[in-house]
Nucleic acid binder design. Sequence first.
RNA 1: GGAGAGAUGCCGGAGUGGUUGAACGGACACGUCUUGAAAACGUGCAGGGCUAAAACCCUCGCGGGUUCGAAUCCCGCUCUCUCCGCCA
Length: 429
Amino acid sequence: MISIDLIRRDPDTVRRSLSRRQEETAVVGELLHLDEQRRATIATADTLRAQRNEASKTIGALMKAGQGNQAEQQKEAVRQTGEQLRLLDETLRGLDEQTNSLMLNLPNIVSDEVPDGPDETGNIVIFEEGVRSIYDFELKPHWELSESLGITDFERGAKVSGRMFYVLGDTGARLQRALVNYMIDLHRGQHGYEERGVPFLVLKETMIGSSNLPKFADALYHDSDEDLWLIPTAEVPLTNLHRDEILEPNMLPLRYMAHTPCFRKERAAAGQQVRGLKRVHQFEKVEMYQFVEPELSMETLDAIVQAAADVIRGLKLPFHLLQLCAGDISFPSAKSFDLEIYTPASDEWLEVSSCSNCTDFQSRRSNIKFRREVGGKTEFVHTLNGSGLALPRVIIAILETFQQADGSVRVPEILVPYMGGQQVLHPIR
RNA sequence: GGAGAGAUGCCGGAGUGGUUGAACGGACACGUCUUGAAAACGUGCAGGGCUAAAACCCUCGCGGGUUCGAAUCCCGCUCUCUCCGCCA
């Protein structure tokens, strides 16, 4: 949520941000109007309430003094005030509801550091790193390799859970565990993150706090019986770890990571796009998350990007860093970067990480504040998230990049210890 | 799932209709004292709205109701604890 104060003070900044996101700006005027009505109503109601409180005190005093008659007269007057108040409160509730619903659907303000652009075509490659191998044999696509090596079993995945689900075979499950442990060890040892094991089903309030609800309900799996929602990313529970808290001085920065499954409906997906492990309803991911002081959030974003890039560097995969343009940036983000690995057989760049500075957008929704010093005033923290990394796509990149002429795949050196010394994955069918 | 108890500020804990937004204790911060610290003493210490700042208003798990007036009474919900049942 952005601050209503900002809309009041500087509506043009909000309009400009919305336009850069290719969204309608009329909502700003609506909010301005609602806010005016709201505040006028509050002012009137507060005055009435003050009168009532005062009169009630007088009545109390009169009763004590045994002047019942005068008290009764006063009561009648105050009863009328109470009736007026009831009406005003009802009006106010309506205004609050309207305001809230508009506010919850308003995206974060795009940072000035973000380039203009209509959609993903406007994203900018910041740098490319690593060497693309040259192959003297015909490359196999990942969906063939993963089946022949016993990484995946799509047929049984579909049997058990339907389209866009998969089963990992013995080698695949082991490779995934190896990758998870490698990533978590790296982030703990080199980047200062501590681990959390979080719930995968969360309350509606939790989804609102991270800004997945109300706007993106159709992307989420939901148990209507108990009104619990399956997380689409660990960002959701990690954001809410400190919901409704005031963090004491010296607690920041907080660096968390969590390894979780991610559940996504991916309704729009179809055709070539969903071949193999690339786009699935359930996948695992190691997520990094930070709570920081506002003035440090932009440099922290760079650090998160580097931490994610370090994972790829360790695997010796070629990748590039993409800065997302204003038209492609996600709802809660002020500034985002994606990391994409090059996959030689598919000949495309595959997004394995998205890192965002959500500034105070999520902390306002989740009411997460901090104090700079004991007894100091409270401020909203800034929150940042970054994948570090999404597993199926890393597996895809490993398979396509390190495949050999005989159909086997080399295990990246850094993973060998995590694979019990295994250096090559051999076809099993 | 059944039975019972409870939910108050950073923590413990009082408060059952009227200067109680909240006694008292602890923690914490500042000050006095001290070479320094401890102890002792003094002061401060919930969040939020509206303000230039006050005044004022809201909040005692959440929502609704009764009343001139609710932390206190009534109804619903959520959560926690204890016992029983079930269960990896």
